[in-house]
């Protein structure tokens, strides 16, 4: 990989991690799953990375958080495109070739089919 690509990787990593990471993310996710969402959410409003439950009204700060997250994700994607170049999924043809390659490397597991 060219030097500029390597350094670019570092650049995007720096920006990406800086913008998306949350020091409390893991614990918060667990809390959100295990407890009543609304009372505990507000203290983490700018520091969590969770989706909005359907019960939250539009004027909630959770919605503004969501907008902030979308903005950050958009920024990150823009930066990643700027540095890596336009990122993409495999095309259907490329994907089919990849899966075909995996099929050739595979053996069928007899009796494991769930969808008969």
């Amino acid at each position: 990989m060219k030097l500029n690509s390597i350094t670019s990787t570092v650049a995007i990593a720096a920006i990406y991690i800086a913008t998306l990471s949350s020091s409390n993310g893991t614990n918060l996710d667990l809390q959100l799953l295990e407890q009543d969402i609304t009372p505990i959410y507000e203290q983490y409003i700018h520091n969590a990375n969770v989706s909005i439950p359907a019960v939250i009204p539009n004027n909630s700060s959770m919605v503004s958080y969501d907008k902030q997250l979308i903005k950050k994700n958009a920024l990150i994607e823009d930066i990643s495109n700027e540095i890596f170049g336009e990122m993409r999924y495999l095309t259907p043809e490329e994907n089919e070739k990849k899966i075909d390659m995996y099929r050739k490397m595979s053996t069928v597991v007899e009796g494991a089919s769930f969808f008969d």
Partner: peptide, 29 residues
């Protein structure tokens, strides 16, 4: 310095620091 910069940026970084990040990378480059 770059690693320190990234570490110091946890858990979030203001949008304005994007340019700082780029400057750090250019120095690194």
């Amino acid at each position: 310095e770059l690693i320190n910069f990234v570490d110091a940026s946890f858990p979030s970084i203001p949008y304005g620091e994007k340019e700082e990040a780029k400057r750090a990378i250019k120095q690194f480059e």
